[in-house]
Amino acid sequence: MSLLLESIRKSYREPGGRRLPVLGIERFEMKQGEQVALLGSSGGGKTTLLNIISGILTPDSGRVVVDGRDVAAMQEVVRDHFRAAKIGIVFQTFNLLPAFTALENVLLGMSFSGKGVDKTFAKQLLERVGLGHRLNHSPQQMSVGEQQRVAVARSLANKPVLLLADEPTANVDPANQQLILDLIRDTCRDHNVTLLMVTHSLEVAGTFKRVEKLQDFNRPELCLQEKAA
């Protein structure tokens, strides 16, 4: 088992002091190397869910088991370190740091795990995404699609067990869209990385063997019930 969510509850505190229930997930799991497309309405809690899995956010309660360890129960520094070592993330836009070149952005992905940087591997990854000739270009010198390919390379820099992608192709032109999708899926398959990809596109989702709609297994009202109980 690569990912297991159990009894997740997450609500946001709103300015008025009320609580906004967002996630109530009893059980969700993914096998090692499995690829899942996650669909859901806007504001449904997809990004919140990914943030909880990566440990950027903590759930109000519940277990988030990644690679056999409960991320939600970890201390923050341990969680940060775990994320650096085990989890890759690709955002929708503005993934790269403008002060760093393509290669440096990938190296940055290796900088916080304590494993040291592997320049050769970073170059290989950039070659893999077709940017071997643009190692020293800065993000501003690249198209959005190219930047997104660098982000994909960076997300794999630490050989993660789990890759989380939040609408990675939403802002990319159609030609790059397919390229990036294939890149993510192929490299994940090659390295046996579990992939959870949020998407709005049914077309994209259609290419996945397993497609999940968040609203099918998420019942935010569970947050309220437990509170009342």
Binding site: H81, P98, L108, G109, N158
Partner: peptide
């Protein structure tokens, strides 16, 4: 802010 967020997402700790 965004850059700091990205670094934290890449596993940087608060102290980093």
């Amino acid at each position: 802010r965004r850059e700091i967020g990205i670094m934290r997402a890449l596993g940087a700790q608060r102290m980093h």
